[in-house]
């Protein structure tokens, strides 16, 4: 599996660490425990097919990336900086 980092280019998956589903981009507020925190930390759609998840390019530019990929074929479909994705959501 190779992931094309927007800054570093096409790199071996060994350079990256998987964090988890893009849910992690939407951290709930700090007002205390709520069902939103259960969603954020635990509950997952867990799709067999296209998913979007966060990877850390630790052995490269140390950016957080949002990777769109297929969990059945391991194809990498799209990669962008998590920062850009987060800004795009406002």
């Amino acid at each position: 599996m190779r992931i094309k980092c927007p800054l570093c280019g096409d790199r071996d998956s060994r350079e990256y660490t998987y964090m988890g589903h893009e849910t992690y981009l939407d951290r709930p507020g700090d007002e205390g425990w709520s069902a939103d925190w259960d969603d954020y930390l635990h509950l997952r759609d867990n799709p067999a097919g296209v998913t979007r998840d966060l990877w850390y390019h630790g052995a490269g530019c140390t950016s957080w990336l949002l990777v769109e990929r297929d969990t059945v074929t391991h194809d990498i479909l799209r990669v962008e900086l998590a920062r850009d994705a987060k800004r795009g959501r406002g």
Partner: peptide
């Protein structure tokens, strides 16, 4: 069944 589980495969 409209459920989400605390599970990732």
């Amino acid at each position: 069944a409209g459920l989400r589980l605390p599970v990732e495969s």
